[in-house]
């Protein structure tokens, strides 16, 4: 490959790869349409869920729902609004993003992987904090509240097992995300080093 002749030979091999000459324009248009429908559908779904939650919250306030139901509906509404706004912002950002050169998208990928890493860390820590508070609440209830329903009967054990399973699942997913993000940071950083 040191000589032009060898390089020309490789170039010839490269260019002689058999390729189709005509793309299926109809297929591209269908895929673009499906993409738009999928994205619009997701955003509409988020908005719909938020509106339904808001409706139930208002309905609950007017029809004497229990206080705990108000808290759940209120939490659901805030969560729904957050998810919808975040979804819209991500779409707008993605839509505005022009075609990036390699250097820019490597920077972008590293930033994204770092945020994913931090997010996974936060999820793990908050899950563990939740677990600690859950046990404190459970212990306090068992020792200090004679009316406490969560004793070691079948229902109590089921709720406890469900909480533990849920926590373990969150931690496992967060751990996997963290590992993937760390691998991506390492990979893109080593790619970026080739620019220096």
């Amino acid at each position: 490959m040191q000589t032009d002749e060898q390089w020309d030979d490789l170039t010839r091999q490269w260019q002689q790869q058999p390729v189709a000459q005509q793309p299926d324009i109809g297929l591209i248009k269908r895929r673009v349409l499906m993409h738009r429908l999928r994205i619009s559908g997701l955003i509409l779904f988020d908005i719909l869920i938020t509106v339904i939650t808001a409706y139930f919250l208002l309905y609950g306030i007017n029809h004497d729902f229990s206080a705990s139901m108000h808290v759940w509906l209120g939490f659901g509404l805030v969560f729904g609004v957050l998810v919808t706004v975040a979804g819209l912002m991500i779409r707008i950002k993605a839509w505005r993003q022009p075609a990036m050169n390699t250097q820019s998208w490597l920077d972008f990928e590293i930033r994204r992987a770092r945020s994913q890493y931090s997010y996974a860390n936060l999820t793990m820590v908050s899950t563990l904090v939740f677990l600690a508070f859950f046990h404190l609440w459970l212990l306090a209830g068992m020792f200090f509240d004679p009316e406490f329903e969560l004793t070691l009967n079948t229902r109590g054990i089921m709720i406890y097992s469900f909480a533990l399973l849920w926590t373990a699942l969150f931690c496992l997913v967060a751990h996997k995300l963290k590992k993937r993000a760390a691998a991506n940071i390492a990979r893109y950083t080593s790619e970026q080093a080739l620019f220096e």
């Binding site: 297929l27 591209i28 248009k29 895929r31 673009v32 839509w95 993003q97």
Partner: peptide
Amino acid sequence: VQDMLESIWRSWSKFRGE
């Protein structure tokens, strides 16, 4: 290849000739 074609088609509206 189909992913590339779809992305190019979708991104074309943002092409500003830079």
